[in-house]
């Protein structure tokens, strides 16, 4: 069962479950359980007949993906530089009890890193002890599994990318596991429309790259957390994901930089 992206106008894009991407990646039920029976994923894009609008839409999506990737890099960096102060007993879990407190603490922490270039702590008030009730624990686990299912789906050995304009299939590309590309083009199609398929493939590959990058950052970040905080690896993975997801959301809301600048310098 394919992933369907229907791009008719920029406004028609629905919010995906994880709100990580500009494109809804709705997995079929069997994929959510990591079924390995079918080794093909499908990425189907339906574009409007107005080539200019279609092109702008694709470019806009690519820009958003690039911004997400940037935020993932920032999150990965902070996950690596978290450090444990000496002589302090630490317990690690995740999830704020109070959302406002979490946000403010996160920003303060990031401001500290930015200004001082060192990580003296990762706001242990924010990362509450696992002995206390943990907020949104189940929700975080679900999101992490959903995210991993999306990544696993796009990493299937064959990824088929279809571009359709007003019910007419312009081209299809098979992306093999090692990156090989096979493309079939329909004859007698205008050059400007053919160029749309190239952009669709580019958007798909960039989305897949970003997902893989996200998995890599979360995995490496979780390894770092687990080692530093003496926490179980199964806890560290969703925790690292949760942290990265929060950073993406902050970046997306276009508030991070402004707030960082407004914070007083920490002495």
């Amino acid at each position: 069962m394919p992933i369907y992206i229907t791009i008719q106008t920029p406004e028609a894009i629905t919010s995906p479950p994880l709100t990580l991407w500009p494109i809804a990646i709705n997995l079929p039920p069997d994929e959510a359980s990591f079924g390995l029976d079918d080794d093909e994923a499908v990425w189907s894009v339906s574009l409007p007949g107005d080539t200019s609008l279609a092109e702008k839409t694709l470019v806009r999506h690519r820009n958003i993906i690039a911004q997400r990737r940037q935020a993932i890099g920032v999150a990965g960096y902070y996950l690596q530089v978290i450090d444990v102060p000496d002589n302090e007993e630490l317990a690690f879990a995740f999830g704020p009890v109070d959302k406002t407190e979490e946000e403010e603490t996160l920003l303060t922490t990031m401001a500290t890193f930015s200004q001082l270039g060192e990580a003296e702590s990762l706001a242990f008030d924010w990362l509450t002890s696992w002995r206390k009730p943990i907020a949104n624990w189940e929700e975080t686990l679900d999101e992490y599994r959903q995210f991993m299912a999306q990544a696993a789906y796009l990493l299937k050995p064959t990824l088929r990318i279809e571009t359709t304009v007003e019910q007419v299939r312009l081209a299809e590309t098979l992306v093999r596991a090692n990156g090989a590309l096979e493309t079939v083009w329909r004859r007698r199609v205008e050059s400007t429309q053919l160029a749309l398929h190239r952009q669709t493939v580019q958007l798909t590959l960039e989305t897949r790259q970003s997902l893989a990058f996200f998995v890599a950052q979360v995995s490496a970040g979780a390894a770092s957390l687990a080692a530093k905080f003496y926490v179980a690896q199964w806890v560290a993975l969703p925790a690292a994901f949760r942290f990265a997801r929060d950073v993406i959301h902050r970046a997306k809301e276009d508030q991070l930089l402004a707030r960082l600048k407004a914070l007083p310098e920490r002495t």
Partner: peptide
């Protein structure tokens, strides 16, 4: 969580299995 990691690991391994040559093919229909 283990299932998710196993799946990702298998697919990553498959992708890295043969990267010696990259093919790009163009067809017309």
């Amino acid at each position: 969580i283990k299932d998710a990691l196993k799946t990702i690991t298998q697919r990553v391994a498959a992708a890295l299995h043969n990267v010696s040559t990259l093919e790009v093919l163009t067809y017309l229909s």
